[in-house]
């Protein structure tokens, strides 16, 4: 039984990294985030200081998972900013999220523009609270996809499914760029995409 979320906090000197999937698996392409992290877990191997978690749609309950982290990579469905087509991969870093000093004043004065991901009320509010409390993550990157359809129980659309594989490799590349050990598994481990199975 994995207890990574609990164990990595036992005072280890290692950097704390979180790869988090956000989204509702029951709502079609909104399940991109959970699917991407599950595929990442299946295809790549990381050390125990990297938490890989499907968080669903936690709203403000996101804060504990970001608390004092060194790097957070969030996989999530995002709203198109321009005219991106469904399935487009969008990578946002601190500047885009209005988190860096340079980006903060602009972003804060126009909160409407903050809706980068479907779940950003939780993401941005949690980050702001943690920053004020002095426990914000040092860096946040969103690996997003523009959804095609978020219908109840509809499963993932083909365009988003294809992007999912690219997103998984993107997450691995981002970790490597941050000098975090991340190895492609020779034999992928079983992935549990239980929500895509049909009813009995």
């Amino acid at each position: 039984m994995s207890t990574s979320f609990a164990d990595t906090t036992a005072g280890q000197p290692l950097r704390r990294i979180a790869v988090l999937g956000l989204g509702n698996v029951l709502l079609g392409d909104d399940g991109f985030g959970p699917m991407a992290v599950e595929m990442f877990r299946s295809l790549y191997e990381c050390d125990s200081n990297v938490e890989i978690l499907d968080l669903g749609t936690p709203g403000l309950d996101l804060a504990p998972y970001l608390y004092d982290a060194d790097l957070v990579v969030i996989a999530d469905a995002v709203h198109p900013r321009e005219e991106e087509t469904p399935g487009t991969l969008c990578v946002y870093c601190d500047d885009d999220l209005g988190l860096s000093e340079a980006g903060s004043s602009q972003a804060r004065s126009s909160p409407a523009q903050l809706r980068l991901t479907s779940h950003d009320p939780g993401v941005l509010e949690s980050l702001a609270q943690l920053r004020l409390a002095g426990h914000a993550p040092s860096e946040v990157i969103v690996v997003g996809v523009v959804p095609e359809s978020c219908g109840l129980g509809k499963g993932i659309s083909l365009s988003v499914l294809n992007t999912c594989l690219v997103a998984v490799d993107t997450i691995a590349r981002l970790l490597l760029e941050h000098s975090i050990d991340c190895r492609r598994r020779r034999d992928p481990i079983q992935r549990t995409l239980w929500w895509l199975s049909g009813s009995a």
Binding site: N24, G28, G59, P121, S149, C150
Partner: peptide, 12 residues
Amino acid sequence: TLDASGREIARV
């Protein structure tokens, strides 16, 4: 979680 348009997933 579902609204008429199926897109505004978590507007708050």
